[in-house]
Computed example of a mutant assay.
Amino acid sequence: MPHTELSHTPHVAVIVFNDFSSYHTSVPGIVFSSRTLNETLFELTFVAGEAGSIVSDIGMEMQAELDLSVLQSADIIIVPYWRSADERPNQTIMEALCSAHARGALVVGLCLGAYVLAYAGLLTGKRSATHWELERDFTQRFPEVKLDTNALYVEDEGVITSAGTAAGMDCCLYIFRKYYSGTVANRLARRLVVPPYRGGGQAQFIDQPIPITTSDVRINELMTKIRQNIGKRYTLDELADSVMMTRRTFTRKFHKATGMAFGEWLASERLTLAQDLLESTELPIETIVDRIGFSSVLTFRNKFKERFSVTPNHWRKTFHHDI
């Protein structure tokens, strides 16, 4: 749950290493920067994780003036990336991370940063996320870690890990929301021109990304019409006729175009709209259910909780903001 009052400005320490990823490092840099919303909501510092020059994978040099002693007092410590799954981090940084976690700091590994946390033993017995392409390698190296390849990010006992690239942004926005209200977090997301969350709940799972458009023109046109009339009841036979296909052909083509069965896609679209209505309106649950097209309130609540791991009422209490 987001905090509405804080005793102090949370200190975020981002650790950088030689051959760092400029993109992955810039994500926490922009999310927690005072310049993004022109307001100091976090104290942000960059810390050198090793001696010597700190140069990115594309030749950008960074002057990280602070050393690892900063980790003794930071509230949030982020390892935004790691240069190689095969390389074990230096013992000093691993001990510093373990010490920080032991005193209560939130320790975060974005993308391959999860490897640093796993090498340090911080993920032993815990759930974790990392880039899906590294599933086999990660599980072979760290069989004691419960890797969830479907999660955008995972929090388990004060340790957060995320999947690759854009999921780092999702993860940082999640951390932001832990400390400030949904209203402020949503304002930040709008400034960054990104969704404030994808999926939902605490871990925010997405089995498959929901496609906005596909390479099939007829399927695209049909998806647009359905979004405009999301509360209507649909049958596969009617939909197939509308695009001049047999039911079997339509079912096959829709799955090929979207990666999802039609019923799965429609439920995802309806749940996404339900999120927006829960956050931005005072509409009763019954009215929302009628508007988005679920057959009953009970069905809606079950589907919502199955997808987001929280009830619709809990979602509204957490993310609703005045408009």
Results as ranks from 00 to 15, higher is better:
residue 37 L to M: 12
residue 61 E to T: 12
residue 14 V to E: 14
residue 111 C to Y: 01
residue 19 D to S: 07
residue 46 F to E: 11
residue 8 H to P: 00
residue 88 R to S: 13
residue 113 G to L: 03
residue 12 V to S: 03
residue 43 E to S: 14
residue 113 G to T: 01
residue 89 P to Y: 08
residue 68 L to K: 07
residue 56 S to A: 11
residue 55 V to G: 03
residue 83 R to F: 12
residue 18 N to I: 03
residue 80 P to T: 10
residue 10 P to L: 14
residue 84 S to A: 15
residue 60 M to T: 12
residue 17 F to D: 09
residue 84 S to Y: 01
residue 84 S to V: 02
residue 101 H to W: 11
residue 46 F to Q: 13
residue 45 T to R: 07
residue 66 L to S: 10
residue 112 L to Q: 08
residue 29 G to I: 13
residue 27 V to N: 02
residue 21 S to H: 10
residue 16 V to K: 01
residue 95 E to G: 00
residue 77 I to G: 05
residue 17 F to C: 07
residue 104 G to P: 04
residue 12 V to T: 10
residue 41 L to S: 08
residue 72 Q to P: 00
residue 43 E to D: 14
residue 25 T to E: 10
residue 30 I to N: 05
residue 9 T to F: 01
residue 13 A to K: 02
residue 108 V to N: 02
residue 92 T to R: 11
residue 88 R to I: 14
residue 21 S to A: 12
residue 102 A to R: 07
residue 112 L to K: 04
residue 103 R to W: 06
residue 80 P to F: 04
residue 40 T to A: 12
residue 36 T to E: 13
residue 48 A to N: 09
residue 67 D to V: 02
residue 80 P to D: 13
residue 112 L to H: 07
residue 9 T to H: 00
residue 54 I to E: 05
residue 55 V to T: 14
residue 102 A to M: 08
residue 109 G to A: 11
residue 59 G to C: 06
residue 17 F to Q: 12
residue 28 P to N: 14
residue 93 I to T: 09
residue 114 A to C: 04
residue 12 V to A: 13
residue 11 H to Q: 09
residue 104 G to Y: 07
residue 13 A to L: 08
residue 60 M to V: 14
residue 38 N to V: 06
residue 101 H to Q: 13
residue 28 P to V: 10
residue 54 I to P: 00
residue 10 P to E: 10
residue 98 C to A: 15
residue 112 L to P: 00
residue 110 L to H: 00
residue 62 M to C: 06
residue 103 R to K: 14
residue 19 D to T: 06
residue 53 S to T: 11
residue 113 G to Y: 00
residue 105 A to P: 05
residue 114 A to E: 02
residue 66 L to P: 00
residue 8 H to R: 06
residue 99 S to H: 02
residue 59 G to Y: 02
residue 108 V to L: 04
residue 38 N to A: 12
residue 26 S to H: 05
residue 19 D to A: 09
residue 60 M to W: 03
residue 52 G to A: 12
residue 15 I to S: 05
residue 9 T to D: 05
residue 24 H to C: 11
residue 89 P to G: 09
residue 34 S to F: 00
residue 108 V to K: 01
residue 44 L to D: 10
residue 100 A to E: 06
residue 75 D to I: 04
residue 93 I to A: 03
residue 111 C to H: 01
residue 63 Q to D: 15
residue 74 A to K: 01
residue 32 F to H: 10
residue 108 V to P: 01
residue 13 A to F: 07
residue 94 M to L: 06
residue 10 P to I: 11
residue 109 G to R: 02
residue 97 L to C: 08
residue 24 H to L: 15
residue 38 N to M: 10
residue 102 A to I: 03
residue 66 L to M: 08
residue 86 D to I: 05
residue 64 A to P: 09
residue 13 A to Y: 06
residue 66 L to F: 05
residue 35 R to E: 15
residue 64 A to W: 04
residue 85 A to H: 06
residue 59 G to H: 10
residue 48 A to M: 06
residue 97 L to V: 09
residue 44 L to Y: 06
residue 73 S to Y: 06
residue 95 E to D: 15
residue 22 S to T: 11
residue 11 H to T: 09
residue 10 P to Y: 12
residue 52 G to L: 08
residue 72 Q to G: 14
residue 64 A to H: 05
residue 92 T to D: 15
residue 76 I to Q: 06
residue 90 N to H: 10
residue 58 I to T: 13
residue 84 S to N: 12
residue 29 G to V: 12
residue 13 A to Q: 09
residue 86 D to G: 13
